[in-house]
């Protein structure tokens, strides 16, 4: 292992990792918003919108992110929709993540016993109040483990960003392998940086999951 090489190219990896995290966080935040809205539409069975959401979820879950990105980045400009690579990465990640987040929220909402809604209503609450004060707080905490799993999944998916010429970690590693043949060092840095990004989220996830399991709602 050539440590001088590692030291020299460390900053390159740092800025690449920063780019991954930046686009990843923005895309994930957007996917949470999309997922939340879709879950509410599905939960209340709002006509028309509900069908649209179902179609979106099927497309999003049954096609690879790489192809979604290719479509957004290379195909959409042909019909006049041009966006820069960073926004494209964010939009693509949100398009993919929205459906996963929707499923996480929805299973949380469905896990709440109908009697919770009913007893809130029988106390004279409006449906919106019952949702806000009683159903949603419980649904969100039930969704947390699935939620964290989705965040890890989406952060991993960001590894395809180099395909739309974003200079992320994969791009940097491939570039260094191609230029200097320092394969071991480049791959070592690649693994280390992904661990730095992903391990804390993964540990946080299992910590939260354990706490929720012991705290346990319900009877």
């Amino acid at each position: 292992m050539n440590w001088d090489f590692i030291q020299e190219y460390l900053p390159l990896y740092e800025s690449a990792a920063l780019l991954t995290v930046k686009i990843g966080v923005a895309g994930i935040a957007l996917s949470i918003v999309i997922g939340f809205l879709c879950a509410v539409v599905l939960f209340f069975k709002i006509p028309v919108l509900r069908q649209a959401v179902s179609v979106y979820i099927e497309i999003s879950r049954n096609t690879p992110l790489l192809i979604q990105l290719f479509f957004i980045y290379y195909a959409l400009p042909k019909i006049g929709i041009k966006i820069n690579p960073e926004v494209c990465g964010m939009v693509g990640l949100a398009f993919l993540g929205g459906s996963y987040m929707a499923e996480a929220f929805r299973s949380g909402l469905e896990a709440i016993e109908p009697i919770q809604m009913e007893s809130a209503l029988s106390l004279g609450m409006e449906k919106s109040q019952a949702l806000r004060y009683v159903v949603l707080p419980q649904a969100v905490s039930i969704s947390v483990p699935a939620f964290v799993a989705n965040i890890i999944f989406l952060l991993k998916e960001t590894s395809v960003f180099s395909a739309i010429s974003l200079m992320d970690l994969m791009f940097t590693a491939k570039d260094l392998i191609g230029q200097y043949y320092k394969t071991t060092e480049s791959l070592f840095l690649l693994v280390v940086f992904y661990l730095i990004i992903l391990l804390p989220v993964s540990l946080l996830g299992s910590f939260i999951e354990r706490r929720l399991r012991y705290a346990g709602f319900g009877s």
Partner: peptide, 19 residues
């Protein structure tokens, strides 16, 4: 909602808000 405020109801179980 107004009408329901005048009627209190207690169910068989699980109707307290666990959070």
């Amino acid at each position: 909602a107004k009408m329901r405020q005048q009627i209190g109801m207690v169910f068989q179980s699980y109707d307290l808000f666990p959070h």
